[in-house]
């Protein structure tokens, strides 16, 4: 897990080499970080890998079982359903959110908005809202007792479905994550657009380029790298989804089970089932899947760089 891919981030240029006298001074500055890094990041991963290779049996106690826990996970229908939920969010909710973020970033960058700074600031506010509170707010609004949906149904005799019914609960969840991160992604993309030197637009205007040509030839390429970064964050967020469904569970106990997402499954395996070894295997498996996804995204992003 430690060798997972970065986010397409580049290494800053090296500082000038120093004399041997100061060879170890750098460790003085980096040492504290690395020490705690080893204790809180590297050690748990190693410990989890170790746990995932064992099984606690009633007879015979703790015994080495090789990859057996992983094979169980591959055939576990509960894990499949959990994985299916987050994959669906990844392939439906994330593209919708990214499209909205991209349009908003382009609109901000176009300088054609009135009160642009109000949009820029307000749309980013949800990022500062804890995911627990986001889920609580939307959960209340979805709710059938005093939610907005119930209000609308009774006020104008609509028959809007209950957003927390089993057919819609994923969409309801996707709406919460979209609300939380659409502005965050917009700011990342907008920053990338702002880094385009202005003379490039002037040159395009002199050449008689249309607005769409400018977007396709200048703006979209400028956003590509930031888009890959944003997509990697969204991929991680989807695969590791926990807080929002776990909070909504109390409002929709019949539609959100204890294994709704892989992380909820791992959590409940450990804390309600005492199946620590299997939970560790699920956590490591999800880590590996996340890494592969992040790496594939970056490869895709880089390949287009070569063109």
């Amino acid at each position: 897990m430690a060798a997972s891919p970065g986010l397409g981030l580049t290494t800053p240029p090296h500082a000038r080499p120093r004399k041997a006298r100061r060879r170890w001074t750098g460790w003085g500055f980096l040492g504290p970080f690395v020490l705690i890094f080893l204790f809180t990041l590297v050690a748990p991963v190693i410990y989890a890998i170790y746990l995932s290779l064992y099984r606690d049996k009633l007879i015979g106690g703790n015994s080495f079982v090789g990859l057996s826990n992983y094979l169980t996970a591959i055939q576990d229908p509960v894990f499949h359903t959990a994985l299916f939920h987050v994959l669906l969010l990844l392939f439906v909710q994330v593209p919708i959110m990214m499209a909205l973020s991209t349009m908003a970033a382009l609109a901000l960058d176009s300088s054609r908005l009135y009160v642009a700074s109000i949009f820029r600031m307000s749309l980013f506010v949800p990022y500062a809202v804890p995911s627990v509170v986001a889920a609580l707010m939307w959960g209340f609004m979805y709710g059938s007792t005093f939610g907005l949906v119930a209000n609308l149904n009774s006020a104008i005799h609509l028959h809007l479905p209950n957003p927390l019914a089993s057919n819609y609960v994923l969409a309801a969840l996707g709406n919460i994550t979209t609300w939380e991160f659409v502005g965050f992604n917009m700011i990342i993309l907008y920053s990338a657009l702002q880094s385009v030197p202005k003379d490039r637009y002037e040159a395009a205007a002199i050449d008689g380029a249309t607005k769409f040509q400018v977007i396709r030839a200048i703006k979209v390429p400028a956003m590509r790298r930031a888009l890959v970064v944003a997509l990697v964050f969204a991929l991680i967020g989807s695969f590791q989804l926990f807080a929002e469904p776990n909070v909504l569970k109390s409002l929709a106990p019949n539609t959100i089970g204890s294994a709704f997402t892989p992380n909820m499954y791992a959590y409940n395996l450990s804390f309600n089932g005492q199946e620590f070894n299997y939970a560790a295997a699920i956590a490591i498996a999800m880590g590996i899947i996340t890494m592969i996804g992040a790496y594939a995204l970056q490869l895709g992003g880089m390949r287009r760089d070569d063109r």
Partner: peptide, 30 residues
């Protein structure tokens, strides 16, 4: 600064950015 092991540290830290905190919560608890 340049110091022994710097390249390895840089690679590991850039890699760690992609490790989500939640993935480590259960192992860290254990």
């Amino acid at each position: 600064f340049t110091f022994p092991g710097k390249r390895a540290v840089m690679a590991i830290i850039i890699g760690a950015i992609a490790i989500p905190g939640t993935a480590l919560a259960v192992p860290a608890y254990l």
